[in-house]
Design a binder for these strands. Structure first.
Length: 415
RNA sequence: GUGGCUGUAGCUCAGCGGUAGAGCUCCCGGUUGUGGUCCGGGCGGUCGCAGGUUCAAAUCCUGUCAGCCACCCCA
């Protein structure tokens, strides 16, 4: 009579069963470790923000705010939004404590962010995104550091320099050309979008002419001539000196958001079956303008876990699952149950993760269960062991057994 | 928001007008306190849902819902 509930997770979000959680942890831990190795400190915040943070002008792209956020009214009649990105939150946090913070500031976070849109490969409604930013540095050294970090991150995931390429560009270049050709604000946005998709657009010039008329040809001409800037050249050579050679200047890289003010970059997968932008970032010096009048120079990037997972998958770099449990204790006789618990307590105090059988099953079944859970070691305990104090420690992958006393177990497993 | 593809057992899928299938998983067995392999047996489906065509529909048609992919847009 009663309709049963669906076991599907909510549209566009994922369940993380232990195997997936393992990969998820690996991704997050790798991100954190690399960021910290460059001196970045972790921060965090609630997933809930007042909606004004995103609806204010300049905070983000308008469509995202109006149609692509999870927004609701709380019981106190406040408009609340599940954060669609982390940047406005950092801006808020920075502006609040600006005077007390020690600049330059290096911060990172791996928050989950939400976007109400139609799910597809590489894009879900919820994902975790590494946000890495350096605040308070005007010089191009900040870009060099951020891109070095991004590159180091790719290598930490097991990628080689052939697996990905970094393309850099400079918004300032575009801006100066826009000014010369007196391109208006609305036109700018459209042109940026066109440039972003240039490689994919067949009749790029026609589309460009529709927006700019006669200025289209001139814009294209200037773009191809002024395809670099001193800042870009300097950045490129710095990165090369640091051994990063899979970098190139590409003026078609503009990034979607308006808030970038200078150098932008994007990292691409070179594999033909996954040939697309993995992540990117750039300089945005007007970040805190919503809260503050004094500009704050910032350079950063965002990297999503879904794209990383796809990348790892296509390049065969996913880590193999292993249980966090080290040892499974099988019971060979039910009157030694408390003795087994005692052994478990002792081993846990030595730092081992120990799981104890609770069911009345045959030893063979118990071992099968432990193996299915990918627990590396098992030990059967019955009357003999309780009396002698020596155990047979079995390594499931190899099938090898070793006679050990209680005090030798931890070292046998850790080695 | 637009377009394409797909919904059959817990999972992956075959069947494409004539009584619902395979592999994997799961459960039981191949006697004693040692798993993976092998062998035998078993559980399990209103063929997404609702209409229609037909003597007969998982199969053909229409609608609907869901999922995937692409576009739009972009973290």
């Amino acid at each position: 009579m009663s309709e049963k509930l669906s076991t599907e997770p909510y549209k566009g979000v994922r369940d993380f069963y232990p195997e997936e959680q393992f990969v998820h942890n690996y991704i997050r831990e790798t991100m954190a470790a690399v960021a910290e190795s460059f001196g970045y400190s972790e921060y965090s915040a609630s997933i809930l923000e007042p909606s004004e943070l995103y609806s204010s002008k300049g905070a983000a792209n308008e469509e995202i705010v109006n149609e692509q956020t999870y927004t609701f009214t709380d019981r106190g009649k406040r408009q609340v939004t599940l954060r669609p990105e982390m940047t406005p939150t950092v801006a808020r946090m920075l502006a609040a404590k600006r005077r007390e913070l020690a600049f330059p500031l290096r911060w990172y976070s791996v928050p989950n962010v939400f976007r109400y849109e139609r799910p597809q490969r590489g894009r879900l409604r919820e994902h975790w995104q590494l946000n890495c930013d350096i605040f308070g540095v005007t010089e191009v050294t900040a870009e060099a550091e951020i891109i070095s970090l991004a590159s180091a991150l790719m290598h930490a995931f097991g990628a080689t320099s052939e697996d990905f390429e970094i393309r850099i560009s400079d918004r300032a270049l575009l801006e100066s050309i826009f000014t010369e050709l007196s391109v208006t604000g609305d036109e700018k946005a459209t042109v940026m979008r066109l440039l972003d998709k240039r490689a994919k657009t067949e009749n790029f010039m026609n589309a460009l002419t529709e927006v700019l008329g006669e200025r289209a040809r001139e814009l294209d001409d200037r773009l191809s001539r002024a395809s670099s800037s001193t800042a870009l050249e300097s950045l490129l050579s710095t990165l090369n000196e640091r051994g990063i050679h899979n970098v190139s200047i590409d003026t078609s890289i503009v990034r979607g958001f308006d808030y970038y003010t200078g150098i932008v970059f994007e990292v691409f997968d070179t594999a033909s079956e996954n040939n697309r932008s993995l992540f990117g970032g750039g300089r945005y010096d007007n970040l805190t303008s919503l809260f503050d009048t004094e500009p704050l120079p910032a350079v950063g990037f965002g990297m999503g876990d879904v794209t990383v997972r796809d990348f790892l998958e296509t390049h065969n770099l996913l880590p193999e699952y292993s249980s966090s449990t080290d040892l499974y204790l099988c019971s060979a006789s039910d009157d030694v149950a408390e003795y087994i618990e005692e052994v478990a307590r002792e081993l846990r105090s030595e730092g081992l993760n120990v799981e104890v059988n609770l069911l009345d099953k045959k030893v063979g079944e118990q071992i099968k269960l432990a193996d299915k859970k990918k627990i590396p070691f098992v030990m059967c305990i019955g009357k003999d062991e309780a009396e002698s104090g020596t155990f047979s420690l079995k390594h499931l992958a190899s099938g090898e057994e070793k006679e050990v006393g209680l005090k030798e177990i931890a070292t046998a497993i850790f080695s």
